[in-house]
Design a binder for these strands. Sequence first.
DNA 1: CTTCCTTTGAAGAAT
DNA 2: ATTCTTCAAAGGAAG
Length: 565
Amino acid sequence: MPQLNGGGGDDLGANDEMISFKDEGEQEEKISENVSAERDLDDVKSSLVNESENNSSSSDSEQAERRPQPRPDSESFEKTRDYFSEALRRQQDGGFFKSPHYPGYPFLMIPELTSPYLSNGSLSPSARTYLQMKWPLLDVPGTAALKDSRSPTPGHLSNKVPVVQHAHHVHPLTPLITYSNEHFPPGTPPAHLSPEILDPKTGIPRTPHPSELSPYYPLSPGAVGQIPHPLGWLVPQQGQPMYSIPPGGFRHPYPALAMNASMSSLVSSRFPPHMVPHHPHGLHQTGIPHPAIVSPAIKQEPNSDSVGSSAHSKSPGPVKKEEDKKPHIKKPLNAFMLYMKEMRAKVVAECTLKESAAINQILGRRWHSLSREEQAKYYELARKERQLHSQLYPGWSARDNYGKRKKRKRENKQDSAPEDFSSRSKKQCVQYLPSEKMCDSPASSHGSMLDSPATPSAALASPAAPAATHSEQAQPLSLTTKPEGRPHHPFPLPGKPSGSSSSSISLSIGTTSSHSTPLLSRPIPFTSLHPSMLSPPTSFHQAALNSHHALFQSQPLSLVTKSTD
DNA sequence: CTTCCTTTGAAGAAT
DNA sequence: ATTCTTCAAAGGAAG
């Protein structure tokens, strides 16, 4: 796994990054920095020739680099504080807390000591911040603490990803854990409590292999839903449950076995009460209507019938009946979505903009400017998310949701798009971009992506994560053409190596400038070099330095082609 | 009131 | 095996 070895040249996903860079460049740089792409190109070209260390500093690049580390946002801290108090209150009540900013992510993301995220094994500042934000009450232990918590051999924990436990060995959440049947009516234990899990497809009982279990989300059916996260629904953002579960409930694949109190609590916070068969309809245990219970999906598309049913029909069992009313089970959020969720508020606060489209653009840029470590964090979260989701909804398939949304602008997208797209998209471009600029300092991509491979922990942690073996990754910028198969993502992700990407490579310095159009990065395929990449050799270089990517340094130049996606 | 916009990523469908 | 589509969140704008 190239990724794992920070050493050499593995840089993963450089290509992908390229893509993003490209985008950024187009939008942002074009507009805001009239700095001239041309110049950039020239620079690039020259840099190609000699890339050694130009150290000039481009303001953009600098800013971009800074981006990753969001400035201390007093506001957010304040919020956090509020949440904290709230959480505290809740805790005193016997409830437990939930992460305010990240409603969906109850679990803790703590890099393993060996995690690629941090070479030294310590929790990065950002990670700490992250944790604190997520878990205001949780004190993030230092490395030592982490070690401690891990040492006790939490059997319930995956060997891969350590879960933070309370320093005092007593998990703060422990008391809350209800891993028992008490929540279920006596005598009628839910099928899912059975130690064995029925394979949704085959119907054959199976016992989940430990490796299958998400360290973060071992589920306890009983706990799930029964212990709604107190803050979960208090938090504004929390309005909706991440996932909804059909009233009838799914068969939970994960029996007690994996259950760890903290885990179950975490999970419970993540999944709305209505998941529980007994409180299917929106009434919180307390009798208070639980916001999370109202699944937007349900609200919007009550009748999911046709499309959605397929998945469940596969699964044997009683669940079938509920297909009719089966609530819309949403897709698990991907890394970027998770990031958006967390950062949106912040961005909104910083900007005057409120339009999501604009905010999203900003977020998209910020996303690209995130350091590898930071992104890895989200990829990991997303991975867990998917894992949990699959555990919760064994038979669910993304296809189930197809057609539930109104058809989206298909035209706009690829085919016809290029042409039409001019009118609308362009316009918007104009609209949004400027504002972005206002708020968001141009994050020209910094080399974060180019950075050393924070291996997506996925690679480490999850069996699923395929090792990225692309040479390209190793060579962030390479002139060569890219083999087609490169993983679309910098972090090869677990789920599917797929990729979308193939690249048509082309080196394209020339081409780059050509596609000026695009706002729509996706629809418009292009291969290009991102101006930002180009322009700031410095930033680039810096990035390389930051990443400690030897290879990078060794290979100064290369243009990566971008895959068009 | 509904859909669009916008972002990235994942997954399924289509080729 | 690769490419194309759809959906996930969010909330103002537009129809």
